[in-house]
Amino acid sequence: MSKKPIIIDTDPGIDDAAALAIALFSEELDVRLITTVNGNVSLEKVTYNTLRLLKLFEKNISVAKGAERPLIEDPIDASNVHGETGMDGYEFEEPDNSLLLEEHAVTAMYKEIINSDKKITLLPIGPLTNIALLFRLYPEVKENIEEIVLMGGSSGRGNSSVMAEFNIHADPEAAKIVFSSGLPIVMAGLDVGLKALIYPEDSEQLKDMNKTGHMIYHLFKKYRGGSFNTGLKMYDSCAVAYLLKPELFETIDTYVDVELNGAMTKGATIVDFKGYLNKESNVRVCVDINAEEFKKWFIDSIQKCN
């Protein structure tokens, strides 16, 4: 079976670390490039974190540093959830900086996509700034993109504001560009992330499983995406799970847009399940997940890591 070529755009982040581990050790995915974006913490920190993870995983994947701020808005972060460094709780070795490309993430993505003999899938699990810039600067890449499977958005309430999920709220203008790109998009947002829980007994399994499990266990002890005792939310791993095991999800194809003008709703994803807007579907929205099967898949996937 040929591997699916993907580019991961990320902002590690504790749940990003778990998602990256699963993707990088999957036998079904060919991770061509990892790009970083300002999000959970600053661009410098998320890039450093990505390189530290690659050192731990013993993977030689090129990394390109992307946008250090949103297109228009002032930056926000989620250090209250992930800790000051973005990956508090584990002592990593110093990374191999030779994996860091000199060129900007958008240039690196352009080259990888345009020169690929197979269509590339984009897996953005942070704010969508880099992807929006890619489409604005190099719209021709769309012809060689298979689909976008992203972690972000919500069909209901938010986790960064009353109505907005963090990744979309962090750069709503970028999200609007991506959702209106005309490409096939899968949105794995809060609807499934809030149900994709890892409980204390699951974390205990990870602790002595392998090097990666040991690292994730210690990060989870510091993670505030939920509670270590009552269940930690694996938002980003849901996007990877959709790529590898889509049967875990219930989905609805519908029209999605991003609110930019609401004083209290900016960054909200408007998910038009009932067709009020009379627009054609542009997004496959994950609305539910088999939580028990997801948990088994997550633990099995970490077991395959180093």
Rank of each mutant, 00 (worst) to 15 (best):
Gly153Cys: 10
Gly153Lys: 03
Gly153Val: 07
Gly153Met: 07
Ser154Tyr: 04
Ser154Trp: 03
Ser154Val: 05
Ser154Met: 07
Ser155Trp: 05
Ser155Lys: 06
Gly156Ser: 14
Gly156Ala: 13
Gly156Arg: 09
Gly156Phe: 09
Arg157Ala: 14
Arg157Gln: 13
Gly158His: 03
Gly158Ser: 08
Gly158Phe: 00
Gly158Pro: 00
Asn159Gln: 09
Asn159Ile: 03
Ser160Pro: 02
Ser160Thr: 04
Ser160Asn: 08
Ser161Thr: 15
Ser161Phe: 04
Ser161Trp: 06
Val162Pro: 05
Val162Cys: 11
Val162Ala: 15
Met163Pro: 01
Met163Val: 12
Met163Phe: 11
Met163Gly: 00
Met163Trp: 09
Ala164Cys: 10
Ala164Glu: 01
Glu165Arg: 00
Glu165Lys: 02
Glu165Ile: 00
Phe166Cys: 02
Phe166Tyr: 15
Phe166Val: 03
Asn167Asp: 11
Asn167His: 11
Asn167Glu: 11
Ile168Val: 15
Ile168Pro: 01
His169Trp: 05
His169Phe: 11
His169Leu: 08
Asp171Phe: 08
Asp171Asn: 14
Asp171Ile: 06
Asp171Thr: 10
Pro172Asn: 11
Pro172Leu: 07
Pro172His: 09
Pro172Ala: 14
Glu173Arg: 12
Glu173Leu: 12
Glu173Asn: 15
Glu173Ile: 09
Ala174Ile: 09
Ala174Cys: 13
Ala174His: 08
Ala175Val: 10
Ala175Gly: 08
Ala175Ser: 15
Ala175Cys: 11
Lys176Ala: 15
Lys176Arg: 15
Lys176Phe: 11
Lys176Ile: 11
Ile177Phe: 12
Ile177Thr: 15
Val178Ala: 10
Val178Met: 10
Val178Gln: 06
Val178Leu: 11
Val178Phe: 13
Val178Tyr: 06
Phe179Ser: 03
Phe179Tyr: 15
Phe179Pro: 02
Phe179Thr: 07
Ser180Cys: 12
Ser181Phe: 07
Gly182Ser: 13
Gly182Ala: 13
Gly182His: 12
Leu183Asn: 10
Leu183His: 09
Pro184Ala: 13
Pro184Cys: 14
Ile185Val: 14
Ile185Met: 05
Ile185Ser: 01
Val186Leu: 04
Met187Pro: 02
Ala188Asn: 06
Ala188Cys: 15
Ala188Pro: 00
Gly189Ile: 02
Gly189His: 03
Gly189Pro: 01
Gly189Met: 03
Leu190Val: 04
